[in-house]
Write a protein that binds this DNA or RNA. Structure first.
Lengths: 253, 253
DNA sequence: GAGTTTTTTTGACATAACTCAATAAAACAA
DNA sequence: TTGTTTTATTGAGTTATGTCAAAAAAACTC
């Protein structure tokens, strides 16, 4: 895989003192397929280095885009984590997802031309920003890039369907077990520690996302701990019995 | 908008005696943006007419593709309706969606290379099939088509997120009201009657989709009828108070 | 580090929705 | 049509999860 002018950016920022946790390696990042294409595209499009792809830290509580902002960039979480949510008229936000290290953010904005939700850092984090509007301005053939985006979106759709499918029918225990499994699996995929990790989000964020009361999430986690499935220390979780948690998520318990 | 060699196909089959209900007009069909591109592409790619796009009737109960079949085509529902579901090991299918007249089917298969669910006709229906593999074989530049697909997928993602957002927190009444609203809205968008229409799916299909027991769906529908919001006759619904149903779906009741 | 604010845990109680079951109505087949 | 099968309705009783509230623990702030 050819690496072009972005190589410097892609390896910079190794140790950002503000970032709460370790960074994901580029080769483990969900945006890497697109980055690689961009490396190539940038090299020959004459766009100045760093315009298409930019690294930057994001402090806890900061937003990188808000619902209805015009679409301009794709983001990848390099360190830390984000929640995405839809603010509602009655001030009860609806959490629609969590984005961990190595995961993309903002792809849904491409279709409508504006972001369909707000993205807020759950802890001190850092992101890569891909300014796609600039790329399109450059007028270069972007077929390969489009194919990459199609695949990303397709995966997103498949994931959403699975989420709906499972969510709607599962008990609170299955949902929480599934949530833990999902976090663990996603961290593992990005080469991060996946048995013991930090849950940056609050109990009520989790509950909001899973369609449960925060109190219920708390109760279920406590129960899991009593059953010896997990160990809890504040926001830090250790999954003691991975198989059991997965089984429970699948409804096989 | 230029119309090419497919024009004959696109206007054929006006009256299919097997189809249960009226056909959607091409200009109201969700696939039309892509069809238009194909009209153009087919004309100059030398692919024989009818290879990329094919009309055909589908009888009630028939499937047009099954979970894990290799992806080959996008479909559009021209008449009738379909349900999509994921068969599960314990034979309890999970309904993931309903596809009405004018709506696309199968786009999620593009990313992984195989369909992530089974699609089955709820009534005697007809579909347009777009054989995308053929198009890719033809080796022609497909940038425009890709852009169209990106937009379709993006909309799908946005829709899924909304669905998750709403579904997880709503009461049974809100969900059923939302379901009715959604059917009505989608039919309207395709230029079909949207105040009185047929619900091809069973109560338990609806329940399965909404995460409710079929009995609950039945009870809620009965209640809505008693409140004068709708009139029910078997599978045929008349929405008497559109505003009230929408309000209830939004949780404003 | 002390004080303030936010988050989490835990308990008691209320209730929406599920399950099981029986009847009624439609749909289908001969 | 008649009989058979599937689907829908309705009732009774159970339970999982929500709500409200209070105490405990963490997380910030100065």
């Amino acid at each position: 895989m050819k690496k072009g002018s972005l190589a410097t950016i892609r390896t910079a920022c190794k140790a950002d003192k503000q970032a709460a946790s370790a960074e994901v390696e580029c080769q483990n990042c969900g945006l890497d397929p697109i980055c690689s294409i961009l490396d190539y595209a940038e090299e020959r499009s004459g766009v100045p280095e760093g315009v298409l792809l930019r690294r930057r830290p994001v402090s806890r509580g900061e937003t990188i885009f808000r619902k209805d902002d015009p679409f301009h960039s794709l983001f990848a979480v390099k360190a830390g984590s984000f929640k995405t949510y839809i603010p509602r008229f009655d001030h009860t936000d609806q959490v629609v997802g969590f984005h961990l290290v190595g995961e993309m953010l903002g792809s849904e904005g491409m279709a409508n031309g504006s972001y369909p939700y707000t993205a807020r850092a759950l802890e001190n984090s850092s992101v890569c920003e891909l300014r796609l509007e600039k790329l399109q301005d450059s007028g270069k053939p972007i077929e390969e890039l489009q194919q990459g985006i199609i695949e990303l979106l397709g995966k997103e759709v498949a994931f959403s369907h699975e989420l709906i499918a499972s969510m709607v029918h599962q008990t609170s225990e299955q949902r929480v077990a599934g949530f833990l499994s999902s976090l663990s699996h996603r961290l593992h995929r990005r080469g991060m520690p996946s048995q013991e990790f930090n849950m940056g989000m609050s109990r009520s964020d989790i509950g909001n996302f899973l369609g449960l009361a925060g109190e219920t999430v708390s109760r279920v986690l406590t129960k899991f701990q009593k059953q010896g499935l997990i160990r809890l220390k504040h926001k830090r979780v250790t999954i003691l019995d991975v198989a059991a948690v997965q089984q429970m998520a699948a409804g096989l318990d």
